[in-house]
Amino acid sequence: MKFSIPFLYYFITRINSIPKKVSWSIVNVFPILWICAMISDISAFLLLILYFFGLCAMMSIYEVGYLENDIITTKNEKNPTKRLDDYSHNFLEKNYSKIILLKYTITLLIFILFIVIMVSANIQLYIYQFIFSLLILRVIYLIHNKIRNKFNILTFLGLVIFKHYSIILLFIPFNQSLSLLLLLFILFCGQRLIEYGSKKRFGLNIHIGNLDVFRVYYFLVCLVGYVLYFVFKKGSIQIYELLVDDLFFPLALYLFIFRLLLLLAGRVFGVVQANE
């Protein structure tokens, strides 16, 4: 069944245009890949393979949450967002259990593949951490789909964090990953959390205006914050050394430049901002 293939359901229902797919890759795929390359001594070619399959395993679990939301949760909503045509929706509803089982099977097979690669290539992977983080991701999505109130802001934050953090935990022990967790929170979760919290249904009166402008300002603030930290920091703070000196600034600059170019393209060529 095609909907059991990792990424396919996400590409069809959430980022269903080429600009959105490109934007998603630039913002979500390449930065995390670069982080993994920086923290791992695995060869580039093998790292790419492991990263790709790690993404497939994570997305298989994440898409279970999407399917659960679109097929089950929406039945209890007054005005649900319709993401599928009637034929596809009926097909998924009829074959829901089979598709979910296939997705879990794909993830299990990827775990087995990781074990084979780890043994045959004599490399260190933290597979149990990765499995546990995906279990957490699944539990958070279950809660997220059951609840429809302001608590969704917290569950959304958990989803965004573990969506990225799970991949990183495949390559680095947990006790060395806390500075990276802070980096993820600032650069990949903060912006998304503010945007999600600004939804009218939460009633928080958060007004961010134009998304492209807000995103440019957000990463500009991150860069200014880095400069201030670098100028005024006292002594050696080892837990933040990797975060600030080696990863934070180039990633913040990368995301700022991309957001700025996207804003300028919108102003000059009328390009519509692409949600990721």
Rank of each mutant, 00 (worst) to 15 (best):
E241T: 08
S25Q: 01
I194K: 00
N69R: 03
I147S: 13
K20R: 09
N16R: 12
G225A: 08
L260R: 03
L264G: 05
L154Y: 08
V272L: 12
L8F: 08
S97C: 10
T13R: 08
W34I: 13
L109K: 09
K150Y: 09
N175I: 00
H144M: 09
S179V: 06
R215G: 04
I42P: 11
Y217L: 13
I208A: 07
L46K: 08
T74I: 05
A57S: 15
F3R: 00
S17G: 09
I112T: 11
I42K: 06
V272H: 13
I61E: 03
A44K: 02
L178I: 03
L102M: 15
D85N: 15
Y87K: 13
H144F: 15
V271D: 05
I106K: 12
A265G: 10
D41H: 07
L178N: 03
L125I: 10
L125N: 13
C36T: 15
L109F: 09
F52Y: 13
E93S: 15
V64G: 03
G158M: 06
M1C: 09
L170S: 06
I12L: 13
V268G: 02
N90F: 06
I131A: 15
I15F: 06
K199I: 01
A265T: 04
F151I: 15
L55I: 07
L101Y: 13
P80E: 14
R138N: 11
Y51T: 06
I186A: 03
